[in-house]
Nucleic acid binder design. Structure first.
Length: 707
DNA sequence: ATTAGGG
DNA sequence: CCCTAAT
């Protein structure tokens, strides 16, 4: 059985490794695992794990959040067992296995053939008993999931070989029962609140895993579990993971050796696509445990999320322990952060729909810019949507929109009671500003439903002149993604860049002076001109020296950051808390401009490779967003670019001249380095350098070297 | 905090 | 760009 690296986890609770970057694109799989304290495994825990996994990936976070919304839950529920139909938005697969061990582990990883599981001791395998807790597709082949859910698993020995409760907590002890929810059942609130056993599943004889139940004699505690989780997100339900078509799903499949993911230290033999759940040979029973909690989550926000957060935190708290034990660098979740905020703001609060007023388009002279300026005018800004796809041919009818206001996504602010009103204002302002400056998505809703296809015309979408009031809505959402548009082609949002972490964070509510503030800047919304913000990123002035300053300054100016005094910073716990809660994000991608490349090359030519800090200081001292690591990386890519054929190069083409300089500088400094190691004779070095550089027609080399 | 490399 | 290991 799987259980590779069981020993990787030497702590209670569980960690949720970051989702490999690869998962940002469709059809990528991720792996994660979870360890459960004692013999308890709860559906919620599992889901939380999955959720946490997803959340850890900032770009996916909202996706998950959406999934948590009540609307989608049903879909999840009904599709859990129907993933083959591909008509759902997310399906969950989970399976667990039993093992004689003191603790339980949740492996959300692809089942690894026993033979290939490198990290578990051979003696572990035999004692392994898999008990499928989730009816998944492969299980369905042999029996109906619905039935499975309602069957009772009995242990002839007087106990249950495996007990899983879909309740908040799953008891692994024998005698416990499986609580499951019918996939088709719609839970009532009452039911949702019940945490006790609901139904007992008895594995039908059909279940190929029955023998597993009869497995070990001892009070077979559910000690270890192996779970494979597959989640599919369909564009329609997942705004962040938008795909061209509904069929284009994202599979979040647990597998340890996810390609490119730093999942497993030990490369496992190539696996079949996750779809074919491997090793059915293992006796497994599965049970869908998602539905209930997925449905429930949106409602019991406080409980759910706090719990959730706790879980996540626990993972983080144990990071060090984890790290120390963990053999490889498999799970780079070190600095991953998630926003609790987005989850909720996206699912409900964040979506503020606005009114629309349609009117027969008479103004043919108006173009889309007019439309947008109008849109944004409401927010006090005008911007040019970078992602505007809709085509407004001049002869089209025009849809007039009037957005009365945007509601800012939910904000959570914590401030001491002793704080002054003024500081509260500043705090709120700061939070709001941070959000706005952080980048927002504009979502389009029609009939309350998100419109995700950016490529449809308004007409096709149904946003036409004869629209009725209220049919169309817009929403501002925290932009979770720095994803390139290509990653979410179906998204209906206008992505705006962000550079700073969302200040939103859910703080422990145990603070007496927690004030929750929801900001609604209706009267005089101060929105940054994000459109320009974008454009400025790559639009540098010609002067390599001051261009960075300029752009930086401009960007900031555009973000309409209110003058924030140090005092404010001191007074607002938001900052501290934000950092504390590790709310951060992947930095936005900022392609190097040619000018920057030029500056970099020049600096490296002079300073050589390996002195990135100096390079930074010298040429990018004013570009705060460029760290020496960035520069180093850029050099690396430049070098690579220079070495590959022009046809293989992508992105903004770098002048061959620069690339040549890169090559020259690289070879030169490489030799330099080598020489230094052998015989630190400055003279020969100089000679070599000069010959090389001059040969490469670097006129300014000398100056730079001298200067 | 930097540097070097792998991802 | 991120993440780590090693300085």
């Amino acid at each position: 059985m799987v259980l590779q690296k069981r020993l990787d986890y030497g702590f209670s609770g569980y960690q949720v490794p970051a989702i490999p970057r690869a998962t940002r694109s469709a059809r990528k799989r991720v792996t994660f695992r979870k360890r459960v304290e004692g013999n308890q495994i709860s559906a919620f825990d599992l889901l939380a794990t999955v959720a946490g996994k997803l959340l850890l990936d900032k770009e996916r976070a909202p996706a998950l959040n959406d999934t948590w919304s009540a609307e989608d839950q049903s879909a999840v529920e009904t599709n859990t067992v129907k993933e083959e139909r591909g008509d759902g938005n997310l399906s969950l697969k989970l399976e667990t296995c039993n093992q004689d061990s003191a603790d339980a582990e949740f492996f959300a990883s692809e089942l690894v053939p026993q033979s290939s599981g490198p990290n578990y001791s051979s003696k572990e395998s035999p004692s392994f008993r898999n008990v499928a807790l989730v009816a998944t597709s492969d299980c369905l082949e042999s029996f109906d999931a619905q039935k499975l859910m309602n069957v009772k698993i009995k242990n002839e020995m007087g106990g249950l070989a495996c007990n899983v409760e879909t309740g908040p907590y799953v008891c692994g002890k024998s005698g416990d029962c499986i609580k499951s929810v019918s996939e088709n059942k719609v839970l009532t609130d009452e039911e949702l609140d019940r945490t006790d056993k609901v139904s007992i599943g008895e594995v039908a004889d059909k279940c190929p895993l029955e023998d597993a139940l009869v497995s070990d004699v001892k009070p077979p505690a559910l000690v270890s579990s192996d779970s494979s989780i597959k989640a599919r997100s369909y564009g329609d339900h997942n705004p962040l993971v938008s795909f061209p078509t509904k069929r284009d799903v994202v599979d979040v499949v647990s597998r340890d050796d996810d390609e490119k993911s730093s999942g497993c230290t030990h490369p496992s033999p190539p696996r079949e696509p996750f779809r074919s759940t491997p090793h059915i040979g293992d006796r497994r029973i599965r049970k869908i445990l998602a539905s209930k909690y997925w449905k429930k989550a949106p409602r019991l926000k406080n409980v759910t999320y706090s719990n959730y957060d706790e879980n996540l935190k626990s993972g983080y708290c144990n990071r060090s322990a984890y790290k120390s034990i963990r053999p490889g660098k498999n799970y780079p979740f070190k600095k991953r952060k998630f926003f609790y905020c987005s989850s909720e703001s996206n699912s409900d609060g964040g979506t503020s729909s606005e009114c629309i007023s349609d009117s027969p388009g008479k103004n043919n002279n108006r173009n889309n810019s007019t439309l947008y300026s109008k849109m944004h005018g409401v927010t006090g800004e005008s911007s040019s949507p970078a992602n505007q796809h809709k085509s407004f041919s001049s002869r089209d009818s025009h849809v007039k929109l009037r957005i009365k206001s945007f509601r800012v996504p939910e904000l959570f602010i914590e401030i001491p009671e002793s704080a002054t009103v003024g500081s509260l204002k500043r705090t709120v302002m700061e939070a709001v500003t941070a959000i706005l400056g952080d980048g927002l998505c504009v979502g389009v809703l029609l009939q309350g439903k998100k419109v995700r296809d950016d490529n449809k015309t308004l007409l096709q979408t149904g946003i036409s002149c004869d629209n009725q009031m209220g049919a169309l809505g817009f929403s501002l959402e925290p932009n979770p993604s720095n994803t390139s548009p290509s990653l979410c082609p179906g998204g209906s949002t206008l992505k705006l860049p962000r550079d700073t972490p969302l200040p939103l964070a859910r703080y422990p509510a145990n603070h007496g002076s927690v004030n929750q503030v929801t900001c609604d800047p209706s009267p005089e919304p101060r929105m940054p001109n994000l459109g320009n913000f974008i454009e400025n990123n790559n639009d540098y002035a010609s002067s390599p020296t001051d261009m960075f300053d300029k752009s930086t300054t401009e960007s900031k100016a555009l973000v309409a950051v209110p003058a924030m005094s140090m005092e404010t910073l001191a007074v607002t716990p938001v900052h501290k808390k934000s950092k504390q809660s590790e709310v951060a994000q992947r930095r936005i991608r900022r392609p190097f401009s040619i000018t920057e490349v030029e500056a970099l090359v020049q600096a490296v030519e002079k300073l050589g490779t390996g002195r990135w800090r100096d390079v930074k200081l010298r040429a990018f001292n004013n570009a705060k967003h460029r760290t020496y690591v960035d520069l180093k990386d850029k050099w690396k890519t430049l070098l690579h670019t220079a070495r590959i054929s022009p046809q293989q190069r992508r992105g903004e083409p770098v002048p061959q001249e620069l690339l040549d300089r890169v090559l020259n500088a690289h070879t030169y400094w490489s030799h330099q380095q080598a020489k230094q190691q052998q015989q630190p004779l400055p003279e020969s070095c100089l000679l070599y350098r000069n010959s090389t550089m001059i040969a490469s027609s670097r006129r300014d080399v000398d100056e730079k070297i001298l200067g």
